[in-house]
């Protein structure tokens, strides 16, 4: 594949799309034809998302098929992954086939699989966090330094203040927890948020100018 197709065309597309959105956002008021025209661009993202989904499906099946054929690491899990993906795909397509006027129709079987398999598994995995957090807090929260001690005390106040037991012990605990959220936390998070925003703007400018090319993949295959 030539360098033009792999590098230059994506860079030109990125620059054009980005610059159009910047100009439309900052120089045209909402409701003007120029601004409305950008709705076509944002609307096209749906198509790109679908394409990305299809590519993701192909890559996933290819990756796990190779893993099975080579008897790679945890290859038995790959079998379950492929079976799960294909079965759910068939169930989903069946629902759409029976309701062609409604492309996002979820059949009863589709909903059953979602509610009784996926939901249960996802909730189970997330619930395990409670045990890991308890164990991690037990081992990691130490009075090693002034900073660690402050973190420990604030953490304990938040744990008590953000649960009904805090108010039952002393009515001031929820107030302290709310103050910690509203004042010191807001100050720290505001600084982080502003820093991230400035970083994101700089990254966007670098991408538009073609300086930052990481999203295109490695320079040489």
């Amino acid at each position: 594949m030539s360098l033009v197709i792999k590098r230059y065309i994506p860079l030109v597309i990125t620059f054009l799309m980005g610059i159009i959105m910047v100009i439309a956002t900052y120089f045209f008021a909402p409701g003007t034809p120029a601004r409305d025209a950008t709705a076509l661009l944002t609307g096209s993202v749906d198509i790109l998302v679908v394409m990305a989904g299809v590519i993701g499906l192909i890559v996933l099946i290819r990756h796990h098929s190779v893993n099975i054929s080579k008897r790679g690491r945890f290859w038995k899990y790959s079998i379950f992954t492929i079976i799960g993906v294909i079965l759910y795909l068939i169930i989903g397509l069946y629902g759409v086939a029976t309701h062609p006027q409604h492309l996002m129709y979820a059949s009863d079987l589709f909903a059953w699989v979602y509610n009784n398999i996926y939901v249960s598994m996802d909730m189970t995995i997330f619930s395990l966090l409670a045990f890991f957090i308890a164990s991690a807090a037990y081992r990691a929260f130490r009075l090693r330094s002034l900073e660690a001690s402050i973190l420990l005390i604030v953490g304990a106040l938040m744990l008590l203040g953000r649960a009904p037991v805090g108010g039952a012990i002393w009515e001031g605990l929820p107030t302290i927890a709310t103050w910690l959220l509203n004042v010191p936390n807001t100050a720290g998070n505001r600084a982080i948020t502003i820093g991230i925003a400035i970083g994101a703007i700089l990254l966007a400018i670098r991408q538009l100018m073609g300086i930052e090319r990481g999203y295109l993949g490695p320079e040489q295959q």
């Binding site: 037990y138 081992r139 008590l160 953000r162 009904p164 037991v165 805090g166």
Partner: peptide, 24 residues
């Protein structure tokens, strides 16, 4: 559920206290 959350938070704090006594 909120009672369970309260108990869990208290348990975690007790774990932290026990861990720090051992550490000290």
């Amino acid at each position: 559920p909120l009672d369970a959350q309260s108990v869990a938070h208290v348990i975690v704090i007790l774990f932290i206290i026990a861990g720090n006594i051992s550490y000290v």
